[in-house]
Design a protein around this nucleic acid. Sequence first.
DNA 1: TGTACGACTCAAAGCGCTTTGAATAAATTT
DNA 2: AAATTTATTCAAAGCGCTTTGAGTCGTACA
Lengths: 365, 365
Amino acid sequence: MKRPLRLLRGCLGMVVMTTLKDIGRALGLSVTTVSRALNDFPEVSPQTRLRVRAAAERLGYQANRSAQRLATGRSGMVGMIVKTSADYRADQTFMEILVGMSAALAARDTDLVLAVDQGRDPVEPYRRMLGRDLLDGFILNAPVTDDPRISYLNERGIPLVVHGRDRMDADYPFFTIDNHAVAAESVQLLTALGHRRIAYLNGPAQYSYAARRAQGYRAAMAEAGLPVLEGALTHDPPTAAAGYRQALSLLAGQRGAPPTAFICGSLLLAEGVMHATVDLGLSVPRDVSVMAHDDGLPMLRASSFTPALTVTHAPLHDACVPLANALVDLIGGADPKSLQVLNRAELIVRDSTGPAPETGRTPWP
Amino acid sequence: MKRPLRLLRGCLGMVVMTTLKDIGRALGLSVTTVSRALNDFPEVSPQTRLRVRAAAERLGYQANRSAQRLATGRSGMVGMIVKTSADYRADQTFMEILVGMSAALAARDTDLVLAVDQGRDPVEPYRRMLGRDLLDGFILNAPVTDDPRISYLNERGIPLVVHGRDRMDADYPFFTIDNHAVAAESVQLLTALGHRRIAYLNGPAQYSYAARRAQGYRAAMAEAGLPVLEGALTHDPPTAAAGYRQALSLLAGQRGAPPTAFICGSLLLAEGVMHATVDLGLSVPRDVSVMAHDDGLPMLRASSFTPALTVTHAPLHDACVPLANALVDLIGGADPKSLQVLNRAELIVRDSTGPAPETGRTPWP
DNA sequence: TGTACGACTCAAAGCGCTTTGAATAAATTT
DNA sequence: AAATTTATTCAAAGCGCTTTGAGTCGTACA
């Protein structure tokens, strides 16, 4: 049979790929030996290994992933599925994770395939990607409590790592910050300053990180002997508009005594709260204290707020390398449990938090 | 040789894939015929085709992409390379394109592989991805003027589509709005309202869209017989902070007569300008007119500004389906020139633009 | 001197698919 | 009725890689 014309190589001007055979021919070796040399098998002699390495380098060899995958069943590709909803697309955190993961995976010679979830069934896109592409594993982020996607993949033994954690007794690799502590420590900082009416502007309730922070908030309030006021724990997407709206409503609304302090689930919420205080003629931190959790997103610096914002700080960025390594190791057969990380956020006190205003003082209109 | 143990199928609980052979066996046909039936070859009889279709459906057959790729040289995957810089990650437009493209490509049964550009050489990541994965093509966005990545891929005959256009005589498929017109029409609207000192807060100068808008701005100003004031054409990343800073500097700075109107390259810049006007005690549109280009990003609505913002409007979203189709068609052998789209942005006049203040009036401090 | 063993190397099979070239059966023509 | 076309189908090769099982050479042992 003559060489088929269908190959793209050459005809479309594609970079001509060097194959194992090319290296073998150049060195007078078999493809077997070349393959083994490159894959660090013990039975190839050191000098041969070196010769092969050099030739591979010289000829610009890069393994053909398709062939590798076909032969091994591994693809060197992992998937990540993102939602198409407006609030997802608008949320910088996802881009941060996406870019970070891609970079971290590249260091482990793994590619990231993106797919979108457009439907009602959250596991459908995973099913589709699995059937079609033989991905090696998945990265999942922003899990909801008892996430059905996680169960689906876990039951089938499909490697996955999660940014976040959908339940306490997780048996998959994850990287998450201690969201309970994030909320509780914030409350503790504020109660230590004498605040008693503390509002928590949380993320959307379905996300497990938000549920966990709500727990932390409630626990710390209870521990301080403080009631959680009506409407003082809210759930919104991380936007300045939502923060503004909620702060306005809580500070100027008719819901009883307004809070003297706000804890925000994100810097954007805090931004909205700050605006609301300005519009109401309130001073931060004299009249109201404001703090937030800071995901370390680019171009959004807590230290650049006026006044500089007190935060719990845990860059999303930090999760990517551990997660990428965990996933690749997991695919390589590592123990899932050994790849679990619970990180602590750092408390950074700046200028937006101060002593609670004296009792009885009502600075707002 | 016995069945090797190395395969993931089964051992890791992976979904067991149905192969062509399975279908063939079930129907008493050869893999050849099954393959042809599924790929709509003319030489297979209609009834056989139907039988095969049914069996494939029933058995949940999905082609193994690796095998297909290995055999055809095509992968059914295209690449998109994103930058890791902070301003890129913070820029919502990229997430919008990424998600939109992924969705649009899925409809054409094509996957999107993400890679990151971390280095100094803009073509390096493309070279790497090409050598390694045999992607079928690339999507490129935010080209700079005479973009080296485009030249690199074009010279090698690698299919690519571009969101934007790096030069006027582009010979690749692209989708872009008429950025010259975007700027020119904005200027014309404002000059018709009597404005003579019009500032243009543009995107970063290296991007071709920004360069093109600068041209449009200059051309329209010249046509109206107006000079471009010192410092009235600025280049910044699309952030509210930049808009605020520039507006403040132009309105309150010592750079001669301040502008009576601002055209902003993005809603975020406009947001900053609006804040600046508020802080300076200026009224929009009485003292200053403000307009912007609106990319139709989620959670950022020009109509929700106060006052509602006059814009040129062209949702990024609209580019994705045409681009995805163009890329898949191009890979299929279509003529690049036939896949070029130059779209017009829509001018939407709202409440942020009004007649120029009377000459001599100087409302600012 | 012969045998056994280790150290390397290799040919060949197979992953699932597409495609070539040939074979078979049926329909048409001479 | 034989020869030719047409309509289907098939076996086999090959894509580049990994892995198996079988050599081939020395060197160390008996």
